[in-house]
Structures are given as C-alpha cells and as structure tokens.
Amino acid sequence: MLRYVALRLLQGILVIFLVSVATFVIMHLAPGNPVDIMVGEAQVTQEQIDAIMRKWGFDRPLHEQYLTWLSNIVRGDFGQSVIRTGTPVSQMLQEAAPATVQLNILALSLAVMIAIPAGIFAATKRNSPFDFATMIGSTLGVALPNYWVGLMLIILFSLNLGWLPPFGATTWQGYVLPVAVLALGEMAVLARMSRGATMEVLNQDYVTTARAKGLTGRAVLVRHVVRNALLPVVTMLGYRLAFVLSGTIVVETIFAWPGIGRLFIDSVYRLDYQVVQAIVLVLSTLVVVGNLLTDLTYAYIDPRIRIR
C-alpha cells in the first residue's frame, strides 16, 4: 500500500507540474503582448512601457518568466493582476472562492440526496413506471445544456412568476436557481450510475445467498446491496470534479454568481493573463488532488486495485 501511495503521489506531483507548464504555454500563445492590452487606449510614454515591462518581467525569456511565476506560486503568491491595477491575484481568488465552494457543495449534496436513492430504488423495481421515469429523466438530463435550463428557469420563476431573483447571492432565494441548475446535470449522471451499480450487485451470488437463507428483501437491500453499490458511486463522485467545475463556470456566469467561475470568464474577456493562469492552475490542481484522493480511498477500501 505504501509503495502504491508513494507512486501515485509522485505521479500526481508530476501531472500538476505538467499542468502548470501547459497553462503557462497556452497563455503565451496569445497574439499581441500583454503590455499593449494592459495599456489599452491610454496615452503612455515609452519610459512607462519599459517600466511595466521590467516590473512584470515581460522582457525576459519565456522559461525565466515561467520559473519566476512558478516559484512565486509555490510560495502562494499568484502575482498581481496587470489589468486590474495591481490587485493581488491570490486576494481575488480568496474573495471569490467561498461563493463557488458554497454553490458546489449545496448542488452536489442535493444531487446526491435525490439521485442516489432514486437510482437504487429504480434498480430494485426494474421496468416499473418509477424506473422508466428515472431513466427518461436522467437521459434527458444529460442532454440538457445547463445554461439553457438556467435561462428557462429565469424566464419562468423570475420574470413570469416573480418568485425568485434572476441573480445574486445575497438572499437565500438567490441560491435556489443556481443550485438547482448545477445539481441537475450531476443528478442525471448519478442516478444512472447508481442504478447500474445496484443492478450489478443484485446479480451477484452473495445477494442470491442472502435471499436464499431467508433474509427479508429490505435487509438484503440495506445490508448487502446498497453498501456494495454505493462504493463505486461514491468514489466516482471524486472523478466528477472536473465536470462539476466546468459546470460552475457557466452557471456562475448566467446567475452573476460572485465566484471563481465568473471571475474566470471576466478575466478571459479582459485577457487578464495572471488571473486566468492562476484559476486554470488552481482548478486543475484541485482535480488532480481530488482524483488522487479518490484513487487512494478506493485502493484502501478495495485491495484489488493496489496490485497492478
């Protein structure tokens, strides 16, 4: 186990390093130099431009810029936003993070609480009306673009009925629509997965044995089926992180949610290199760490994984 943990940790660190290189390279594919974008329409002298160049290190070779950037990041310093008059990027991230974390935790909990029981129940009542409804719902849910669902809910609940505000995170009503939209896509995936996992377990010999020795349907379900079916589903949650974070970008943009996703889109529109870089790096690192923890949890619970 220790060997496995060490190996996976090393791989994780290597991947994070590669992610940082990729991010840095992508941002420097941009045509035009950041100073021009930063200065914009303002009248500036050559001396001012030179000063900016020196201050941000744009005059040094790429690999040196990267090393400076990386060594700062390792110390928790993401540099300063060129466009937004020198606000530290880490400060912007810290201000935006809580809103995103809240939104995602609420949405994921909602999805888990509804979709997993629904999927398990659908599997035990195979081909029942409930099973069909669940499957149709999740098939449709996967196909629905979340930003469109968001728009339709705004039209219905905010503009026509006037029940909920179309955006903002200041009141509890403001949470309802973004949480619902973000939860919807995950629900579709989770319900399908937990239905599949449950059906697989239901076909196992030990379930037949449990039934044969006279356990009631409920006892078999709780003690043998659900516990075994939940394992792959719950660990799968860890691998969904990348998708959830993609969803949060769109949902935050639609509902003007003051989180990382909106900060990201804002910074993309302004070509604010430092911020875009930092956010892509932070999100990807989160995904790597999430996947790593999932792998390790899985290996801890299920020893078969360790032996490769």
């Binding site: 992610v19 992508i26 998708f243």
Partner: peptide, 23 residues
Amino acid sequence: RLVDTLMAFPTLALLITLAAVLG
C-alpha cells in the same frame, strides 16, 4: 502522464482559455 495532464483540466476552462487566446 500526458493523458492525465489533459484530464486534469476542467474541459470547459481549457476550451475557453484556448478560444480566447487563439481568437
């Protein structure tokens, strides 16, 4: 590791960045 690296990026974030950078 190359595949792992690609999978670490939230797809939409990577696409948005690429689209913004490449035009």
